[in-house]
């Protein structure tokens, strides 16, 4: 199991293999990665290498696919194997939030979007909801821009604001880990910069695992990077090392744009 730092890893992926077609072929082959707490870990690699699949296995949202199954290994989050029957996926997802590539706020008001996760857990006091919404919107660096129009429709915001709204929605339920699946790929550069700046502040409180196509993004915001290719983990090192002095030739070829 490769670790890249001395901090206690909050996510341990241990010899993990996964298949989308009931075990006929493996999409992920014997992956072992550890993500330390309150750091940003980036997964990079060409299209179809399995990085999104691995990310989605972390909050078991692959359970939606009927034919998906784990063919080997474990994923431990906070020390607990998440694929055992004792683990309730609902509780897991409250602790491991996810931000998607295509931002998808509900066609409700901004307030209702952020309060959605809390409302799922039962009727809440109005003042509690207000506080939580403000805290989340501040945490997502969106409060100043929307504090006067909390009841307006969320779809009236720009793309970058909507994605930050989705992030606010995710942190409103107080997860420990935030998974981000190419969160900036649908955004323009300014919006991307806003989101990256946000990630820089978020990593003080949350552990973040981000899948990204952009290597510059990985260098800018991540502490550790894992490079995947065709379902296998090729290299996992601190970001600076991986990009300036990669140990594996395939890593160097990919990051310098020689293939992929």
């Amino acid at each position: 199991m490769e670790t890249s730092s001395e901090e206690r890893p909050i996510i341990e992926i241990d010899d993990f293999s996964f298949s989308y077609n009931r075990g006929e072929t493996d999409t992920l082959k014997n992956i072992s990665v550890s993500c330390p707490e309150k750091k940003v870990t980036a997964f990079i690699g060409p299209s179809g290498c399995g990085k999104s699949t691995l990310l989605r296995s972390l909050n078991r949202i692959n359970d939606l696919v009927d034919t998906a199954c784990i063919t080997n290994g474990q994923i431990r989050i906070m020390g607990q194997d998440i694929n055992t029957p004792e683990v309730d996926p609902i509780e897991l997802r409250k602790n491991v939030g996810m931000v998607f590539q295509k931002y998808n706020p509900f066609p409700k008001s901004i307030y209702d979007n952020v309060a959605y996760g809390l409302n799922l857990q039962g009727k809440q006091k109005q003042s509690d909801l207000d506080d939580a919404v403000e805290k989340s919107l501040r945490g997502a660096a969106l409060w100043d821009e929307v504090k006067d129009r909390l009841k307006d429709s969320a779809l009236g915001l720009s793309g970058g604001q909507q994605q930050r709204l989705c992030i606010a929605r995710t942190i409103a339920v107080n997860p420990k880990i935030i998974l981000m699946d190419e969160p900036c790929s649908a955004l323009d550069p300014i919006a991307t910069a806003h989101v990256e700046q946000l990630i820089n502040t978020l990593k003080q409180e949350y552990t973040i695992v981000i899948v990204t196509h952009s290597m510059q993004q990985a260098t800018r915001i991540s502490d550790n990077t894992a490079f995947f290719y065709l379902g296998e983990l090729i290299e996992f090192s601190p970001t600076k090392e991986l990009f300036s002095n990669p140990k594996n030739k395939r890593t160097e070829d990919y990051v310098s744009g020689r293939f992929g």
Binding site: I190, A193, H194, E196, Q197, N200, R220
Partner: peptide
């Protein structure tokens, strides 16, 4: 040269 206006503070 404007140093202080980048969105990314590390930059």
């Amino acid at each position: 040269m404007n140093i202080n206006s980048h969105i990314l503070t590390p930059f």
